[in-house]
């Protein structure tokens, strides 16, 4: 088991290194334009361009440039924006992390609970109208673009039905820190949590149902039936347990896609000042140092999260443990 853990850790370090090289290549070496001009933003003055060149050492060999960038990102953390002169980017990104984590973790709790429920109910009532309608709803949930769903939610809760009893409790868009205003924190995040989790509830419900139905045909389920166990017990204690392994793997992969994708879009739509909104604002005024920082930090976080999920997986599945 220790060997498997060490191997996974080594793989994680390699992938992080690979991503950092890839980001460096994309931002500094892509042909087409002077990287200094890209980093300085729109219509930069010659002085700014000169400052960018000096700051990133563009007259030096490529590997020195890579080293300089990594030092600025992780060691000295003094990467500055050239669009907003002198703005230190790394602390700004770190400040926004609690917002993104609040959004993602809350949504993950919702989608795991409801994904499990949908999958279990659909598998237990296989072939019935309940199963069919749950699966149809799941398909629709998977098909909607998350940012569009967020806009529809805003339209309903902020505008059209805001004055009705159903949604009068929804506060205006924005984020309230958990430590200062726990109630406000919760209320502002409820609608974003629901929006973000709908897609994954559909996805996880469908996958879990398929896994459960497959598991129900296995020999050990027949054995459990022969022992005279109740259907509920077979479903929850025997079938669900093996199906959960793929559920956990999926969770690791999607958690990554979420932090770097769907959560970014959800933050933009709901005006939550998280890593995603910061990235969005930087995209609007072509502020490349901000984007470099959010991309590196977010993808490192995702790689780390995936590695942690794999560790859980190693602990869960005895077959992987001995490998």
């Amino acid at each position: 088991m220790l060997l498997a853990l060490i191997r996974r850790f080594g793989q994680m370090i390699f992938v992080m290194f690979g991503i950092s090289v890839l980001v460096f290549l994309i931002f500094f070496v892509t042909p087409g334009a002077d990287p200094a001009a890209r980093i300085a933003g729109r219509n930069a003055s010659p002085e700014t361009l000169e400052a960018v060149r000096k700051s990133f050492g563009f007259d030096q060999p490529v590997w020195v440039q890579y080293y300089t960038l990594m030092k600025k990102l992780f060691v000295t953390q003094d990467l500055t924006s050239f669009v907003n002169r002198g703005w230190k980017v790394v602390p700004a990104v770190i400040d926004t992390i609690p917002v993104t984590l609040s959004l993602v973790i809350g949504a993950a709790v919702l989608w795991v609970i409801f994904g499990l429920l949908v999958g279990l109910i659909a598998a237990a009532t296989r072939g019935s109208w309940i199963d069919k309608s749950l699966m149809a709803l799941g398909l629709i949930g998977c098909a909607m673009p998350v940012y569009w769903l967020g806009e529809v939610m805003n339209l309903i809760t902020q505008s059209r039905y805001h004055d009705s009893w159903m949604f009068s409790w929804v506060p205006p868009l924005g984020y309230k820190p958990l430590t200062e205003d726990p109630k406000g924190w919760f209320l502002t995040l409820v609608i974003p949590w629901i929006t973000l989790s709908i897609l994954y509830i559909g996805l996880y419900g469908r996958v879990l149902r398929a896994n459960l139905i497959e598991a129900m045909q296995e020999d050990y389920i027949r054995t459990a039936r022969a022992k005279g166990l109740s259907e509920t017990r077979i479903m929850l204690r025997h079938a669900l347990r093996t199906s959960l392994i793929s559920f956990v793997t999926l969770f690791g992969l999607d958690f990554g896609a979420l932090v770097g994708g769907a959560a970014l879009l959800t933050e933009v739509v709901f005006g939550l000042q998280g890593v995603g909104k910061l990235t969005y604002d930087a995209l609007q005024n072509l502020d490349l140092p901000v984007i470099m920082t959010t991309v590196i930090y977010a993808s490192f976080f995702v790689v780390l999260a995936n590695a942690l999920v794999d560790v859980v997986y190693i602990l869960l599945d005895p077959r992987v443990r001995s490998a």
Binding site: L22, I26, F27, G32, A33, L283, S299, V303
Partner: peptide, 20 residues
């Protein structure tokens, strides 16, 4: 391992203003 949207954002922002 590179989150799809972050990779796409990195590529787009570099290419969108100047082409390749």
């Amino acid at each position: 391992a590179f989150p799809v949207y972050l990779l796409a954002i990195s590529l787009s922002i570099v290419l969108i203003a100047h082409g390749i």
